[in-house]
Design a protein around this nucleic acid. Structure first.
Lengths: 213, 213
DNA sequence: TATTGTCTCCATCAAATGATTGAACTGTAA
DNA sequence: TTACAGTTCAATCATTTGATGGAGACAATA
């Protein structure tokens, strides 16, 4: 009855949980086609047939990873929403950026996998999907940018998407960007946060008197 | 002597040029591991051995695609630099964003492939690379953001990277984002340009009196 | 016509990869 | 002890995929 994913979440010490973690990491680095189940198995020091025993086929494992990440991300967005409730727009933005950036830098495979899904295609289309549209709308709403309850302007949606993308890009592109700016990890994270706030807070605040055209 | 890539560029009607074009498109959609040479061959209605005859192995073809895209992108950045020379910063930004967005929307595989390279890994590391660091520095310079000739601040570099990333994300994510905002292609492109300018011009102009801390 | 060089494709190979099978090992309950 | 469910792994299979060989088609030229 309980899916492997549910079992994995129930007991973080279980083999299933370990598999899920390794799969997140490796799918996050190499993408779906770029990872082989042998890579995941080797990372765990176990046989590929043990993987199949616990999770079924490669697609099942990948979809479990996507679901798991969706769950984590949604959970954290809820947390943020609670933290910023009632504050002024610039503060809401600053706190959201700080919190989410910190969280995503600690789990870069989330940004990696979301970006893979946005910008790439798998040969066989997946039935499973990220909840980006829902998340985008939720963020716009919790930022107080949705004036007309049932008709969010495209402009606002694109602004929110741009903010999310900027964050994912800094996190996911760390290996590529950090050598360019010659910073250590700690400095890079700090500068990324700074840049995100520097760019997006003025954009949203100037927008507050024209977001809805 | 002349490489297949040079031959392809010399004669756009040649088989090699057709192969290069198809390879750009398909690598751009599915990434390196996600595309098979059979997919490229089928797209062209030719046999895989004909592909090998003209280009060598898969890696060669991929690297030719990367070189080709680098070349095109560099060429267009030079064009932009000429267009904006001598103008004020907000105008430089607006024109650059308009021009590059238009260009990249016409060749989305460029954004796709650059993003794949930023954010993903191939199992065997490629010897070939995108010239992002050089391009980033050139853009910062042509925007007039480089004050100290030999020491560009990390902050400015990250700002430029964020701008480039925002553009690539809107272009590369069109299939994913456009249904969310419910716009047709023409409207989406217009809104993307608007959002990019709306977000990044204030960021850079407010930054002109504190870019170098 | 014969020759040569260019190009294309069918057939095939070898390696990589996803998936399965059956034996063996473990601990627990009867 | 025996029986059984849960787990792991070595061995193996079938398909996909990158790559090659050799024969044939075609055009240009002597």
């Amino acid at each position: 009855m309980a899916s492997p994913l549910e079992k994995a979440r129930k007991d973080p010490e279980s083999v299933k949980a370990k598999i899920l973690l390794a799969a997140r990491r490796i799918f996050g680095v190499y993408g779906f086609h770029g990872t082989t189940i042998r890579m995941v198995a080797q990372e765990l020091g176990m046989d590929i047939s043990t993987l199949h025993y616990h999770w079924g086929d490669k697609r099942d494992l990948y979809e479990a990873v996507v679901l798991d990440i969706n769950h984590d991300l949604g959970q954290n967005l809820i947390n943020v929403e609670k933290m910023i409730h009632g504050l002024a727009l610039p503060d809401r933005l600053a706190i959201s950026i700080d919190y989410m950036t910190e969280y995503l830098f600690a789990h870069p495979e989330i940004s990696n996998l979301i970006i893979f899904r946005y910008f790439g295609k798998t040969r066989e289309e997946a039935g499973i999907d990220f909840k980006v549209p829902e998340f985008t709308y939720d963020i716009a709403r919790s930022m107080g940018l949705v004036k007309n309850k049932k008709n969010v302007s495209s402009h606002v949606m694109l602004m929110v998407l741009a903010l999310m993308n900027s964050m994912h890009c800094f996190i996911s592109g760390e290996d590529f960007f950090r050598p360019i700016v010659a910073l250590n990890r700690k400095e890079y994270i700090a500068e990324a946060k700074k840049a995100l706030k520097f760019i997006h807070i003025p954009a949203f605040t100037q927008g507050s008197n024209q977001t809805d055209k």
